[in-house]
């Protein structure tokens, strides 16, 4: 339909017409082909490369060596129906005079007000320190090398938490990724995936029910 040749008629001076005519080609087949190819490539194109999240798992400790006690541990226990529980510190099977009362689980969910708020609260001390350093730095009371070092010190502080992520049989991969995401984003400290222990599993099952 590019240029439909109008055969004859209507114009004056029949002699010169032959020259003017037919310098144009019918482009229709070409356009058809072009769009056919275009459609094909658009539909088959795999555009975005998949994104990925890098995660390093701990090497199992040598058998004869006892695993290091985790200080300032916070354990997240993931279960079915996107439920997430946590406890802080060491796991205590029963009330203990020295270590404190028996561990109970508290529940969180994957919303802004819950898990994220919790993590932000936990790292608030450190975030505040970093913020304080930043204001100092901006007022030129600190040189930038000192500032960088101090921020690093705050992050490596003993008081920062180690987050342990454990799952029961029914937790989904999505839950795990979501927790890691939140930790990457909002928490100061380390995190690690660990196998769930029997007493912990029992506590979770108590909360969610066996089935």
């Amino acid at each position: 339909m590019a240029e439909i040749q109008e055969g004859g008629g209507g114009q004056k001076g029949g002699k010169k017409r032959a020259k003017k005519q037919s310098t144009r080609i019918d482009m229709t087949p070409m356009v058809d082909l072009a769009f056919l190819l275009l459609t094909f490539f658009v539909l088959t194109a795999t555009f975005s490369k998949p994104k990925s999240m890098e995660l390093t798992f701990p090497a199992p400790p040598p058998i004869d060596k006892k695993q290091d006690e985790v200080k300032n541990g916070i354990t997240f226990l993931l279960s079915k129906d996107d439920r997430i529980f946590y406890y802080e510190g060491e796991f205590k099977v029963a009330d203990d005079a020295v270590k404190g009362p028996k561990t109970t689980l508290k529940e969180l969910n994957f919303s802004r007000e819950s898990l994220r708020k919790y993590l932000l609260d936990k790292s608030k001390v450190m975030q505040d320190q970093i913020l304080a350093l930043k204001t100092k730095f901006e007022k030129n009371q600190l040189v930038d090398t000192a500032y960088k070092r101090m921020v690093r010190d705050v992050k490596a502080d003993q008081k920062s938490y180690t987050y342990l992520i454990k799952t029961d049989d029914k937790a989904t991969f999505k839950n795990v990724i979501d927790v890691i995401d939140e930790l990457n984003y909002n928490a100061v400290g380390k995190y690690v995936m660990v196998d769930i222990l029997k007493p912990e599993l029992d506590l979770v099952l108590e909360k969610v029910g066996i089935n």
Binding site: S52, T172, F173, K174, V176, I177, D195
Partner: peptide, 26 residues
């Protein structure tokens, strides 16, 4: 919606081979 225990089995297979670093596709 894959249950994490299945993932764990695969990760166990990797770690048994002393491969500890992964890219989880998201």
């Amino acid at each position: 919606s894959t249950k994490y225990i299945y993932v764990k089995d695969v990760i166990k297979t990797f770690t048994d081979l002393k491969l500890y670093q992964f890219n989880l596709i998201t």
